[in-house]
């Protein structure tokens, strides 16, 4: 019965979507706003990657909100797990095999370096702070696989997160002071295509990369439950 109601409801919904989607033609250029970004993005912001220009300059305020949402996720995550009962775990995790431990130790610096590369070149090539941060977190995931009982300092993670978040806002306020607008690109834009160009974009992406990396690492850290073991010992 429940299924029939659900299917009926969804049929009505699909018909509604079908009606409205008819007026959105597929595969043709249709928005003035998007064309403006493509035509003037490099000139306005100095970034070769127009998506980055939109994310950090035209719509930088959204990104500030986005960074806040991620920060909130980590905060909420640890608030929810804060009052958790500490269980005694009898079975110690099995030690990793030789291949895993050697392989991970070998890969760890390279993955980390790749993550840093991605967020530093966010204004030139595909990628950016969020993607780079995720890669960095995966490097730490490898690290944790090798040493499941490694203690991590939650305090320092939180400090890194809040400091880089504050750095983002401070750059925004500097934009307000020097450029009259919050988050305005007040630094010289340089020559498009060079590593040091596009004003504040690489700077913000570096902070976002550090922040996202430490946040996702924090979530992995929590989900692996190492926190509990620490208190048992």
């Amino acid at each position: 019965m429940k299924k029939i109601i659900a299917i009926l409801f969804l049929l009505v919904l699909s018909y509604g979507i079908y009606l409205s989607i008819n007026s959105i033609p597929f595969g043709v250029s249709k928005t003035k706003v998007g064309n403006y970004y493509n035509l003037n993005g490099v000139k306005d912001t100095g970034a070769n990657n127009i998506v980055t220009a939109v994310v950090l300059n035209y719509r930088g305020f959204d990104t500030l909100g986005e960074v806040t949402v991620l920060f909130l996720a980590v905060l909420g995550f640890s608030t929810i797990l804060f009052t958790m009962k500490k269980k005694k775990s009898d079975n110690m995790p099995t030690p990793p095999s030789l291949i895993l431990s050697i392989g991970c130790k070998f890969l760890f610096p390279f993955v980390l370096l790749f993550g840093i590369y991605i967020f530093i070149h966010g204004h030139l090539s595909p990628g950016g702070g969020f993607q780079g941060g995720a890669v960095i977190a995966s490097a730490f995931l490898l690290f944790y696989l090798v040493k499941p009982s490694e203690k991590s300092s939650k305090k320092s993670f939180q400090l890194i997160e809040s400091l880089s978040g504050m750095a983002f806002i401070v750059i925004g306020i500097l934009g307000l002071v020097f450029g009259n607008y919050f988050l305005s690109n007040f630094l010289p834009k340089g020559i498009a295509g060079k590593l040091i160009s596009a004003g504040i974009i690489p700077l913000i992406y570096i902070f976002i990369g550090i922040k996202v990396g430490s946040e996702l690492t924090g979530i992995i850290d929590r989900l692996m439950g190492k926190n509990n073991e620490k208190q048992v010992k």
Partner: peptide
């Protein structure tokens, strides 16, 4: 730039 997809 005319045939690039919409970045927004």
């Amino acid at each position: 730039p005319k045939i690039m997809v919409d970045p927004l």
